[in-house]
Design a protein around this nucleic acid. Structure first.
Length: 155
DNA sequence: GCCAACGTTGGC
DNA sequence: GCCAACGTTGGC
């Protein structure tokens, strides 16, 4: 069992959008970064814990708890010529981009980026490292426990 | 809208 | 394989 933090722009897919999806599950499409793709393709297992993070918005922070709900499979949006995620180099035989499905477990109070920065126990989080832009990052068990236990309370 | 930081591209 | 130019991310 591993843990991850996955960024989403709420103007694209917010925690409420995910909550409103069938089975509260949606494909994590649109990742166009190799390292993030590799985490999904090579690192994720069904049932892994996910911190659902809102980025590029007025109040960035963790907005929900989710879980990995599928293995990685080709991201359909890379084949959509009209879409903004189209990749001319991707073919059905040789897809370049993969995604997993993510299922919302529960919406939580927003744990803002500023709040995360206040906690010494979290200073090692990749999210908080200067210059980090990765949209998917691993979270350590200790970080997960601290955030889900201490910051948002026992579920 | 700004801009620092990082990733990707492409000429050589 | 180097590296300059360009594009993107994402907080502020």
């Amino acid at each position: 069992m591993r843990y991850w933090l996955m960024k989403s722009e709420p103007s694209e897919v917010s925690v409420d959008d995910l909550a409103a999806s069938p089975k509260k599950t949606a494909a994590w499409f649109g990742v166009r970064n190799y390292q993030a793709r590799n985490y999904m393709r090579d690192g994720m297992e069904i049932g892994d814990g996910v911190l659902f993070y809102h980025s590029s918005c007025p109040e960035p922070g963790i907005a929900g708890l989710a879980q990995v709900a599928s293995h990685a499979y080709p991201d359909a949006t890379q084949f959509d010529k009209k879409g903004k995620y189209f990749d001319v180099a991707a073919t059905a035989e040789n897809p370049r981009w993969m995604n997993v499905d993510v299922q919302l477990v529960k919406k939580i109070r927003l744990v803002s980026l500023a709040e995360l920065r206040e906690h010494k126990a979290l200073e090692g989080m990749i999210l908080l490292k200067r210059g980090n832009r990765l949209s998917i990052t691993p979270v350590t068990p200790a970080e997960w426990k601290y955030i889900t236990g201490k910051l948002i309370g026992k579920e």
